[in-house]
Computed example of a mutant assay.
Amino acid sequence: MRISELSRRSGVPTATIKFYLSEGLLPPGRATSATQAEYGEQHVRRLRLIRALIGVRKLSVSATRQLLAAVAEHQGDLHQTLGLVLGARPLTGDQAAVEEQPSADVQELVTTLGWQVSPRSPARRATAESLEALQALAPDITWQSLVPYAQLAEATAALDLDGLEQTDNPLERAERAILLTVLLEPVLLALRRLAQENESAKRYGG
């Protein structure tokens, strides 16, 4: 397909595609002349992945380039791929410079559950900040209060990883990792809201 068709199929403007090509995020197409090239389905998938990383994950162009290169480097290693997508594994290799002192409450939660998570995981920091905000309004809420929710999340994670194992292609795995970890999150929140409404109707509805 020509670049105009690639733009139509992917929903990415032609000018943006050319920018991604110049920045090395998108591999070049097969040259058909001095000014023309043909693109395939892999370019469509790659564009969707790039747009998810930049538009949803809010990565910079430079960080996106690093992530895609790192995913290619660790192809076949699903744990590394997922760690890169989740931000639990550094892109630069200088992990010591970015690790933070873990929250004592979150560490207790992680230890109690027997979870293996990186000290630099953004989710660890987000949990600590959210728990602190909750305790400011309701001091009776502790890390122990989160255990039942964490156990539900553990079951969801098993479903996520089952979905990642459906392909051996590193780019498809990265794409699916973003789909199941980032893009699915609003759906999970919406389902929780629907479930809360349903439970309220059963308990308190007329």
Rank of each mutant, 00 (worst) to 15 (best):
N198A: 12
L47I: 06
V110T: 12
V117A: 10
R57C: 10
G11Q: 07
A195T: 09
S130N: 13
E199D: 15
E108I: 01
I141A: 05
T142H: 11
L49A: 03
R48F: 01
G40N: 01
G40L: 01
I54C: 03
E185R: 15
L78P: 05
R45V: 04
T142G: 12
G11E: 08
L113A: 11
L47W: 01
E41L: 09
T111I: 01
T156H: 10
H43W: 00
S121K: 04
H79Y: 00
D140T: 12
L113T: 04
I178P: 00
A157S: 14
G29L: 07
Q95M: 02
T127S: 08
G11R: 00
E132C: 07
Q116P: 00
T127L: 15
L188W: 12
A88G: 15
L49D: 03
V182P: 02
V12C: 14
V117K: 03
L171R: 00
E23W: 02
A158Q: 14
I50Y: 04
T92F: 05
L26M: 13
V85Q: 00
S121T: 07
R192W: 01
Q75N: 03
L21C: 04
E175M: 02
L53R: 07
V182C: 04
I17P: 09
L183Q: 14
A96K: 10
A37G: 01
T142L: 08
Y149F: 15
G76T: 03
A123M: 11
S200Y: 09
L134F: 12
R192Q: 02
E197T: 12
K18L: 10
L134V: 14
D105H: 11
A123E: 12
E154C: 03
G93M: 03
A157L: 14
L25E: 12
L113P: 04
T167L: 12
P13N: 14
L146Q: 08
I141W: 07
T81Q: 02
I141P: 09
